[in-house]
Design a protein around this nucleic acid. Structure first.
Length: 281
DNA sequence: CACCATGTTCCTTG
DNA sequence: CCAAGGAACATGGT
């Protein structure tokens, strides 16, 4: 979610009012279930009105010339998606799934694994829980929702109906900061724990957004290191990633608080990282 | 070669 | 109907 937020802030002023001249779809899979013909007919000639974020989705509002009604293009980065503008003369990346030609540049949706999406289908936005940084996400609502589930809290945090935007990295990070075991049943968190976790989620996400906003990203960069949020540090700030994430991907390394070895386990087929001492049951 | 990966969706089982 | 677990999706890094 922090990556999407930073990306949306980056793209908004770059796309606003730009007109789409041509649509090229190299991987129809990412449009699912929209088809190439429909996307092309709808987008060609349309103009970007605004770009927003909802959970981990990007919402592009567009309007066609002469039409009053706006429509929405929905994007999702999946695991490996990236979106950025390139000069028309630049070489397109190997996994350019969709390319939108604007007047003087190109908007590229690149995705090596093609798990991401760029689609006219907006049903993915339905059923999402509250924004973790929004006002509807309250300790009261959060606690009530947790009460109804016996699942491990780490697994529950990934449920986008509970709160929309917490991913695998920040689920581990938030639990570490709150000092709560990822194995704990959601329904068994105490009231103080619920409050601590609620706060930790907001802190972890807010700090990540701030961090991402302060680093000059090379969005269209070719190298892995140009990807801030998973592969780590941006070129200019070498060690920032390691300092930023306290448990994620730090198996065997000393806990920043107590020096115990960080442990890794699998829950619901996803890796969880935690400190066995600081997050002792 | 084997295993792992930032996410979501679908299928099966209970 | 619901919850939970696992596979699938597809490619590349280690």
């Amino acid at each position: 979610m922090p990556e999407v937020e930073v990306l949306v802030r980056h793209l908004e002023p770059l796309l606003r009012n730009k007109r789409i001249r041509k649509v090229v779809v190299n991987r129809e899979r990412v449009l699912r279930p929209t088809r190439v013909k429909e996307l092309t007919e709808k987008l060609a000639g349309a103009r970007f009105i605004k770009v927003e974020r909802r959970a981990k989705f990007l919402k592009f509002s567009l309007r066609r010339a002469g039409e009053r009604q706006e429509f929405t293009l929905v994007g999702h980065l999946g695991m490996t998606g990236r979106m950025y503008l390139l000069p028309v003369k630049a070489t397109l990346p190997k996994h350019a799934a969709v390319v939108l030609d604007l007047d003087r540049e190109r908007f590229v949706f690149e995705d090596t694994r093609y798990f991401g999406r760029l689609t006219l289908d907006t049903t993915g936005l339905e059923g999402l829980g509250p924004e973790p940084l929004g006002e509807e996400f309250t300790p009261k609502q959060f606690g009530a929702a947790l009460k109804r589930s016996g699942q491990p809290i780490k697994v529950k945090l990934l449920d986008q109906r509970l709160v929309a935007g917490v991913g695998n990295i920040y689920a581990s990070e938030a639990l570490f900061r709150a000092g709560i075991s990822p194995r704990r049943a959601a329904s068994r968190l105490s009231t103080p724990q619920v409050l601590r976790l609620w706060k930790s989620i907001r802190e972890v996400l807010t700090e990540a957004i701030q961090f991402g906003s302060t680093v000059a990203l090379n969005y269209g960069g070719t190298r892995a290191r140009d990807r801030l949020f998973y592969y780590g540090s941006a070129p200019e700030s070498k060690n920032s990633y390691e300092e930023r994430l306290r448990v994620y991907d730090r198996e065997g390394k000393p806990c920043v608080t107590c020096r115990s070895g960080i442990r890794k386990m699998v829950q619901a087929a996803r890796s969880t990282f935690f400190c066995p001492k600081c997050q002792g049951r």
